[in-house]
Design a protein around this nucleic acid. Sequence first.
DNA 1: TAAGTATTTCGCAAAATTACGAAATGATTA
DNA 2: TAATCATTTCGTAATTTTGCGAAATACTTA
Lengths: 109, 109
Amino acid sequence: MDKKIEIPDDVKQIADFAKAMSHPVRVYILKKLSSRNSCCYSGDLVDELPIGRSALSQHLKELKHAGLIQGEIEAPFIKYCINKENWGKLKTAFSEYLFNEVDDIILKH
Amino acid sequence: MDKKIEIPDDVKQIADFAKAMSHPVRVYILKKLSSRNSCCYSGDLVDELPIGRSALSQHLKELKHAGLIQGEIEAPFIKYCINKENWGKLKTAFSEYLFNEVDDIILKH
DNA sequence: TAAGTATTTCGCAAAATTACGAAATGATTA
DNA sequence: TAATCATTTCGTAATTTTGCGAAATACTTA
């Protein structure tokens, strides 16, 4: 007599994306890399952000693991850029999650 | 010679909202309450979600604390609804964060 | 090969998150 | 008043997150 559901994949997906964005430093990095499609180095970020190198590195690792950024070796640097494909998926997922509501639909008759 | 910045408030705001949405149960609840503006009781949710009463209660508390839902006493129940004002703020903040990018703007001339 | 640069990984510690069952709360019904 | 019902709070434990400095890695230049 249980009506227990398994939480749907699209809901889990939003939670995963949200977790990747749940720290100010990561939100800052994503904003920087996604807007005007720029790329940057770990060193650029550590100069402007109020955390140390190793902490930053972990945030980059986390974003990389979430598929939202990618690092390209450009020795002796690593150039980090947005992962356009997955960033696009995130935007689509959030659009649908946030805006596909009955209240937002203007019904024509 | 430090270029260290303080992380801007709009970035922190996104991180706070994202943290509220960083767990599948909370995403599920927000989806349920925001779409078609429905309300529900803790008991409804505990029947369908794969967690216990006390864990659910904590998630509701967290969403309430984030300002995204509100509880109205309707004894012996508590009726939970979306907080429209703050949910609207969340949607605006995410829209701006995700979509105000040069790439998304079609330039007219 | 040695020294230097950019970055990550390791080891650690503090704090936050998540979940549970038991007990407490507050209102209702018998 | 006692029993019941819906829900929250408490106490606890396991896990995850966050951040630091030191050490390691990897590549380049002198």
